[in-house]
Amino acid sequence: MSSQDLLSVRDLHVSFRVGGLPARLAGRATEIEAVSGVSFDLQRGTTFALVGESGSGKTTLARTLNGLQPVKAGTILFEGQELQGLSDARMKPVRRRMPMMFQDPVGSLSPRLSVRSLLSEPFIIHGLSSRDLNAEVTRLLALVGLPRDFADRYPHQLSGGQARRVGVARAIALDPVLVVADEPTAGLDVSVQGEVLNLLNDLRDRMGLSMLIITHNLHVVRQIADRMAVMYLGRFVEQGETEAIFRTPHHPYTAALLSANPEPDPDKVHERITLPADVPSLLARPTGCEFHTRCQQAQARCSVDAPAPATVGDTRLTCHFPLNI
């Protein structure tokens, strides 16, 4: 970890218990590893994107950073403090510095609370209710570009884009250093998606924020992230600078993801890499390289040996036969 690093994750493992007593008695697998041996660094003032399909473990990873999921093994270093195993009470000041935004723009807002109450909540939770909360609410609404009278609205009276702005306002209420955003543009119209991304970019520049963005939308990644990591079955298969990865993806899975974007041009010739079969179950991880069951470059060796992490330029990846080298 260098002095530049705000967040440093080393060899992180997170697992879930599945099945109840019957499954255990039957001797079936009772644990799935949703995050498996993940390491990365996030530098101050930059944006890091986690990309992957559903079930790849990206949301679990984000929730673990926030202490909502217990760490099984590995370390999380945030502003020089180790977070793994901290109690809720010890996590509280950390959560103030590292707020999280959830996927559903409306659903992540408490339905019976007005926008005013929602935006006051961070102050109340962190013992700052002596501040002029009305003034704070007005300030936050202005920061995210919503009119003042929105304070009296309820979540069901907001459009997706407006609800997302309220979510952003709540996240930045207490001058955080790192915002963790899970699918910040999910469910939004294209014209609104741009607004939200512009807002996040603005806030990052103005407040000197760092961001960790989770998304399955590669176009979003390109517009917002400095560095990115591609997750598959709970592991990072490739991570590096966003532009470098978009220009020359090395891992076959990254290449497949990049080519899997429906193109808004009916005449564009596709050099598409179609992935056969569905994502394997975490209960039955493939042997060797876990991507070999869907990989078109796979050779005999891939189903036996797990590839060791390798470095190509600034990019780290785990693959026996990387592309474009």
């Binding site: 998606q193 741009g194 607004e195 512009n198 176009h219 974007n261 193109e263």
Partner: peptide, 12 residues
């Protein structure tokens, strides 16, 4: 549509 942008732009 961000898919139409082939590089990073300052404002979407």
């Amino acid at each position: 549509d961000p898919a139409r942008l082939s590089r990073r732009v300052p404002r979407l």
